[in-house]
């Protein structure tokens, strides 16, 4: 299924960090990347944000009211799961973890645009583990990703399939040969 090019805003980082993040994004897909939000910028056309905590706080009303998919790369993560549309990852996490979080963010931005998307390979991995009866922490350990990332995958899987309960996900996995 062809998707239109998505726009990702990467705001508040220094030049080196910005370069690394945009490289990670470009590895995923062809995105338009904005590194500033000026007055000419149409905020409504932005599909996802990757921002620093200070930018998030200064534009709190924008992110919470628009509920645009947002990833905060913070120096330190004290709590997670504050809002359905916001994920938080420590900037000093392993590169693979940041990559995974960006991948999830971009995937969920696509998910909002294409409601009937197929599950990604990673989402199928997560679904397989959840449908097998593992709790979120066990899934994170098995796949070597953070609990927060598993939760975001879980949220995206539910949004794509329209299935919320764990036993419903297990039935889906059985129906589609993901588990036996």
């Amino acid at each position: 299924m062809a998707a239109s090019v998505r726009t990702i805003a990467v705001i508040g980082f220094d030049a080196l960090q910005l370069y690394s993040i945009t490289e990670l994004i470009r590895r995923e897909n062809d995105y338009v990347i904005l590194d500033t939000l000026d007055e000419q910028c149409d905020i409504d056309s932005i599909d996802a944000f990757i921002i620093t905590p200070s930018e998030f706080v200064s534009r709190f009303d924008l992110f919470l009211t628009k509920r645009t998919k947002t990833l905060i790369l913070a120096d330190k993560v004290s709590s997670v799961g504050m809002d359905m549309s916001v994920s938080v990852v420590a900037i000093n996490s392993r590169l693979s973890e940041i990559e995974e979080a960006i991948s999830v963010l971009l995937n969920s931005a696509e998910c909002g645009a294409i409601s009937n998307s197929e599950l990604s390979a990673r989402e199928r991995d997560v679904l397989k583990e959840i449908a097998s009866g593992k709790i979120i922490k066990e899934v994170a350990d098995t796949l070597n990703i953070s609990v927060n990332t598993v939760l975001t995958h879980r949220k995206n899987i539910s949004a794509k399939l329209g299935i919320r309960s764990v036993s419903g996900l297990s039935v889906y996995a059985l129906m589609n040969g993901i588990i036996k």
Binding site: G162, R164, S165, G168, V171
Partner: peptide
């Protein structure tokens, strides 16, 4: 949630 899931199974 389960009723919603059941509905999704049939519809989707």
């Amino acid at each position: 949630d389960k009723l919603n899931d059941l509905k999704s199974f049939f519809i989707i």
